[in-house]
């Protein structure tokens, strides 16, 4: 009996007419492919097909031609929801990015107090979106919640923050930020720790202060991370649905209606699944376009290596 090592050596020399290494055939990937095709790709085709039908959720969908689509383009709620979606996306991105970048760079330091505080900052990640939204819904209760005490401090005398259009939108941006800033902080922390220390040493020798080092080294080095994190934020913000449903339920009025919320209402509350599928198709188009645009943009960003000049 030869040892395994000798066997390997023999195979590599080719002295034992090495039989080809057995490889898995496509049957290994087939179940996963079929499963994914049935529950994810087929729905993608069906959603477009359903947008040309009327369906109450019971019985069979009936052909309806362009009816849903002409309704979609003249529906003022759709226009308002699109605007609200964009507004929330931009505002969330603009508040979460600087916050998580600064916190991430700060948390990247190895000091003991930073490690302890980072562990606290991480806590929101342990709660589900539903739990967070319901928790803040109770805090924002104008009669008994924190809002009753804190509302007057920020200009809401009666504490009814989510009862106004501006307050409700701000509350959503705040709650979503509370939930997701920790996650993005984590991304920035990991990236900041990967910045070669030699860059900072060189800067210190050159007499650069803290601000100079941040501006000339940290920020440029985090370029790719900003793109990754922003992509996740923007794509993720199309799905604020849970937070909105549980926090404001779309209100007051239609002030916090976003596209997924409108789709849910039309389908599962209004039983107009055909029209809901039309809104969903719009959502697929917007979402995919956005992803592709960002991938394009980030592909461009990645061509410029952060190791230039090292």
């Amino acid at each position: 009996m030869s040892t395994a090592f000798e066997k390997v050596a023999a195979v590599r020399r080719g002295s034992r007419r090495a039989a080809a290494t057995p490889r898995p055939n496509f049957l290994y990937i087939l179940p996963a492919a079929l499963f994914f095709g049935f529950f994810a790709l087929l729905p993608l085709v069906l959603v477009v097909a359903l947008s040309f039908t009327t369906w109450t959720g019971i019985g069979d969908p009936e052909a309806a031609g362009m009816e849903n689509w002409s309704r979609l383009f003249s529906d003022e709620k759709v226009l308002a929801a699109t605007r609200t979606t964009l507004f929330l996306t931009v505002l969330s991105w603009a508040t979460q990015t600087p916050l998580s970048l600064l916190l991430g760079v700060w948390a990247a330091g190895r000091q003991r107090n930073r490690a302890v505080l980072s562990a606290v900052f991480f806590l929101p990640l342990l709660l589900s979106s539903a739990a967070i939204a319901l928790m803040f819904h109770r805090f924002l209760d104008p009669n008994f919640g924190l809002a009753a005490d804190l509302g007057p401090l920020i200009g809401f005398e009666d504490g009814n923050i989510i009862g106004t259009r501006g307050g409700a939108l701000a509350a959503i941006v705040f709650v979503v930020g509370w939930q997701f800033v920790p996650f993005h902080t984590l991304i920035y922390q990991a990236a900041a720790r990967n910045i070669p220390a030699v860059l900072y040493d060189a800067a210190t020798i050159d007499g650069a202060g803290r601000w100079q080092a941040f501006r000339r080294i940290t920020l440029p080095q985090l370029r790719n991370t900003v793109v990754t994190s922003s992509t996740l934020m923007i794509v993720g913000s199309l799905t604020f649905f849970e937070t909105i449903l549980l926090l404001t339920n779309g209100g007051p009025g239609i002030a916090t209606h976003v596209l997924p919320f409108l789709m849910y209402r039309a389908g599962f509350e209004g039983y107009e699944f055909g029209y809901a599928a039309t809104i969903a198709t719009l959502l697929v188009v917007v979402g995919t376009t956005l992803s592709l645009l960002i991938v394009r943009f980030s592909g461009f960003a990645k061509m410029r290596s952060t190791l230039e000049g090292l």
């Binding site: 729905p43 649905f241 969903a280 959502l283």
Partner: peptide
């Protein structure tokens, strides 16, 4: 080929297809 299809699937937002998933 299946792997390329999976990669394409990364871009599908689950929320957008809940109506047909409901049908299925």
């Amino acid at each position: 080929a299946s792997f390329r299809v999976f990669l394409l699937g990364l871009a599908i937002p689950a929320q957008a297809v809940i109506i047909p998933v409901y049908l299925i």
